[in-house]
Design a protein around this nucleic acid. Structure first.
Lengths: 140, 140
DNA sequence: CTAATTGCAAAAGCTTTGCAGCGCA
DNA sequence: TGCGCTGCAAAGCTTTTGCAATTAG
């Protein structure tokens, strides 16, 4: 239940926040830029400002509801926090994002951080490549 | 020899390019933003525009002389391509950047990409954490 | 009722681009 | 000599902020 998540985060349950949460939940591609979310809002109703989208997404990030990623390309993308941690593999051609989780890599990172004398807080691993579709198009 | 690298990249050997290359080579912290490079230029002579710094760095990137990273924080940082590939561990507190290379992680990434049906082009692994200095300050 | 929230518009970064003049090859 | 390169200033993009009106609790 959305409203519960919002309240738990200390945020008032307002229409923009509910809508944005729903968009993030139901989006087929759940890595969205602020602009993406804004466009979806426009087509659904058209009463939420872009500034609000940014504010809400930032609040959601602080509340731990979403994660912000800085993939290549200058703008941030946001993703709903559901399920376990994972990393990303992004198609450089079409922008497709797939998620993956690899135990060996996770373990090895802790190891590396310790060896470097760091207390690991977080990490961001993104593999860039060509998805099958794009690879076929380019070769054929 | 700098000039040789430039010519090899099909770039004319001009003063701004030589200077920027030297700055990247001799910088103690060799992950620099365009602004960082620009400031160094100002203190050395003061005749290179910020726009030129961006242009030259972008050209260097295309030529494979430098790599552009999108760490957290909105702006790009550039790093001279010398020696082997490596990943980064960044201090969230003071911004210190350390490099590391881990064979197991490298291998495992190839594996993951293949399993996801991607042709791997590149990858970017950044661990965020607290360096020893910052960890001590925060605990003490 | 009160403080949080919103929309709009304006501003603030970082980065790119247009253009006239300068410099390398 | 010619084209590439440069500096400056202006524009472009994403993101943030100020403010008056609105709304949740």
């Amino acid at each position: 239940m959305d409203n519960h998540d919002l309240r738990k985060a200390g945020l008032k349950v307002t229409l923009p926040r509910i809508k944005i949460l729903q968009i993030l939940e139901t989006a087929e591609q759940h890595h969205m830029s602020a602009e993406d979310v804004f466009k979806k809002l426009l087509s659904s109703d058209g009463d939420v400002g872009l500034a609000t989208v940014y504010r809400v997404l930032t609040q959601f990030e602080s509340a731990g509801l979403v994660t912000r990623h800085n993939f290549e390309g200058g703008h941030s993308v946001f993703e709903l926090n559901q399920g376990e941690h994972h990393d990303h593999i992004v198609c450089s051609c079409c922008g497709l994002v797939k998620e993956f989780y690899d135990d060996i890599i996770e373990e090895q990172q802790k190891h590396v951080a310790k060896k470097a004398g760091f207390e690991m807080i977080d990490h961001s691993l993104t593999i860039y490549g060509l998805c099958q579709t794009c690879a076929n198009e380019n070769s054929g």
